[in-house]
Computed example of a mutant assay.
Amino acid sequence: MLPIEIVGFVVSSAHAYEGRPADGPRPVATSSPDHIEVRAGHGVVGDRYAGHRAHRHAAVTVLAIEALEAVAAELGVPPFDPAAARRTILTRGLEVEALRGREFAIDSGDGPVLLGGGRPAAPCAWMDLVLAPGAHAALRGRAGVRCAALSTGTLRVGPATVTVPDALGDPDPARAGLPHRRRTRV
């Protein structure tokens, strides 16, 4: 069990970063609530990725705030607004990139919420506009992890713990029992 901090959440019912960055973000309502409700197989209640079949294994994104702080320092700019990265769960003290292909549970006091770490949450060209020039390239490999919601529960801002079951030490999602994408013909 690893003690961490949940720094914040980003929940939005629509995509703000669509189209060309030169046109600017779409004006969409985005909230930074003090808690979120995660539903198994669905995602975060009220979020743009929740309930969409295409995002079933990537409905929740987790990002380490330290990655944003490091990128800001490398680029020589003031700290970024973490909400601008548009990741669902913002953490401190968690090696997020190590969670790819692993099941893990986050517990902020209301019981554990099980997530299945999947593919990287790749940064997009929008990061150069909304964070700072060069942020897109600087965030590659550390922009977070897309996760499947494997259980239902509530997460809150503040102190939390993360548990990664020892039995899932294999980073290959196929062998670790995690959901993974398969191409099927229809």
Rank of each mutant, 00 (worst) to 15 (best):
P27M: 06
A64L: 12
G46C: 09
T152G: 09
I36T: 13
P27N: 08
R100V: 01
V11T: 11
L168G: 09
L99Q: 02
T30P: 00
P79Y: 10
P3G: 13
A54S: 14
L155T: 12
A176K: 01
G46P: 13
G76A: 08
E103S: 09
L114K: 02
T163A: 07
R26H: 07
E5A: 14
R87Y: 08
R102N: 11
A16F: 09
A121I: 02
A160Q: 12
T61V: 05
R181C: 03
R92M: 08
S12F: 06
R102E: 05
A67D: 14
R86M: 05
V157G: 06
V77M: 02
I4Y: 08
P3I: 04
I6Q: 07
G116W: 02
A125M: 12
R181T: 06
F9R: 06
G41Q: 06
W126K: 12
D81Y: 03
A174S: 12
L99D: 05
A16L: 05
L139N: 01
L150S: 07
A148E: 11
R182W: 11
E37V: 15
D47G: 08
D166F: 11
V157T: 14
I106G: 04
P3C: 08
S108L: 00
H35V: 03
P165M: 04
A167D: 10
A98E: 10
I6L: 12
A50W: 14
A16N: 01
H35Y: 03
V113W: 09
D23R: 05
G141E: 15
G169H: 06
L99G: 08
G169L: 09
R53K: 11
V164H: 04
P33M: 02
R140V: 15
T184Y: 02
L68S: 11
E103T: 15
H15M: 09
A167G: 03
A138Y: 00
F80W: 06
V71H: 10
D81I: 00
S32Q: 09
H15V: 11
I65H: 02
Y49N: 06
H52G: 00
L94F: 15
P159Q: 12
H35P: 04
R156K: 13
R119K: 12
V164D: 02
R156S: 10
R119P: 02
G169T: 15
E5R: 10
R26K: 13
